[in-house]
Design a protein around this nucleic acid. Sequence first.
DNA 1: ATAAAAAGAGCCATGTAATGCACTATGAAG
DNA 2: CTTCATAGTGCATTACATGGCTCTTTTTAT
Lengths: 71, 71
Amino acid sequence: MHYEDLINSVKQRRDMLNVTQEMLADLSGVGLRTLKQFESGKGNPTVETLQKLGDALGLELNFRVKNLIAE
Amino acid sequence: MHYEDLINSVKQRRDMLNVTQEMLADLSGVGLRTLKQFESGKGNPTVETLQKLGDALGLELNFRVKNLIAE
DNA sequence: ATAAAAAGAGCCATGTAATGCACTATGAAG
DNA sequence: CTTCATAGTGCATTACATGGCTCTTTTTAT
């Protein structure tokens, strides 16, 4: 999963739940500015930021073994 | 997946591949100091750092929808 | 027991993530 | 076209992640 996929996971999930950036910022405890930067692809967030967002959205961050065959 | 699970994913995978911290630091392009901090649970790495480590170990970072029932 | 390898920690400099505030851009509804 | 909600950007500040160096601790092998 590339970085953009992480971004899209958050965006899509947020849209699916009908939550605005402002609401998600409040719910997750992540600053609105930080969330905006993340979603617009500008940042290099820390794992803590990702986990806060994930927690608020019911997503969990994990490492998966890559499938080398079906890239 | 909690933060410790991310750490353990890297440690276990590194051990499985018989790679030292020093080797992984070189392979991934992550500083040895940073890797040591991460594995010893001290840090709050950026997603870039996690992805570099993942790339070198054949792991990919992703968001999964949480299963609320079987926590 | 001891030596070598690997892992962890302190110190420090540099870069940048996080954040608030104010402003702009985009988009939808009237 | 205007208005309102939502999303994106510039700027400045603070906090901390990164990474090299050195030293200590732990683990492993002989």
